[in-house]
Amino acid sequence: MLSSRLTPFLFLAPALIGLVVFRLAPIGIAVAGSMTGTSLMGDLSFVGLENFAYLFTDAEFWSSLQVTLLFNLIINPLQLAVAFALALLVFQQGRAIWFYRLLLVLPMAVSTGLSAVLFGLFLDGNLGPFNGFLEWIGIGAQAFHRNQDQALGTLIGIATWKGAGYWMLFLLAGLYSIPSSVQEAALIDGATPWQRFRLVTLPLMRKPMAFVLVADTAINFLFFAPVYILTSGGPSGSTSVLMYQAYLSAFTFSDLGRSLAISTILLMIILIIVALELRLLRSPEDHAA
């Protein structure tokens, strides 16, 4: 018979094993692999921090890091704001409100790769319909992902088109979880709609917002498919995020060690930024605790 002390672990085992196999082991492999080098004939050797030392002296790495940080600095607050605004819009009661919710959630059903291909066709400078429209209304044709100054913004737009509806769902659920009694109390106290939003809704939405921001950040630091499909990191490196550099290192330059070093650095950055975000969005009650 198993001792009763071991019993809980027995029940926890499936989850713990899953955690180790699918979470900790890959991280371990990546970190260990980042300290290896492979010879042309495939012999693996331990190289210590050589891959990192190389990256830190590589101009391409620094410019890619800059692009990654800029991308995330814009896209994460933007997606949170857009998702929140959409959630507030469809939180209304009304006829056919389900229809609008459906419209906003619909892009979720399109895979990221497919949405990149679709936008590529839509925005194409020579065959795409969108530039014809822009010319017709007098703005003139734009190069979008083919222009060094517009490419990153275009990718942010595509990702937000796809992502905003998804994150809206979590925030909408959050809005529903605010007890109506609190809102009513504020109403009776004579609070204006703005005051109700700022002093009631917003503070009570901290937790769902924190979740969305953190989850969104983790996803956007690993943003890859549209870069691979639409821009290949260009024009002139303007969309060359670290994930793309990691991909190139592994699959084009046959340098798995460097690729894993980039992944490890990304992991560190995500950990630091998520920790900062959680701290920022901590509610006052938590501070007191």
């Binding site: 190069a143 083919r146 222009n147 060094q148 290949s232 990191g233 260009g234 024009p235 002139s236 190139l248 084009t252 330059f253």
Partner: peptide, 17 residues
């Protein structure tokens, strides 16, 4: 590797780099 970097440069030249 040669092709990858050269292709990128050629595309960037086409877009005006």
């Amino acid at each position: 590797e040669y092709e990858e970097f050269l292709r990128t440069a050629m595309q960037d030249i086409q877009t005006g780099g």
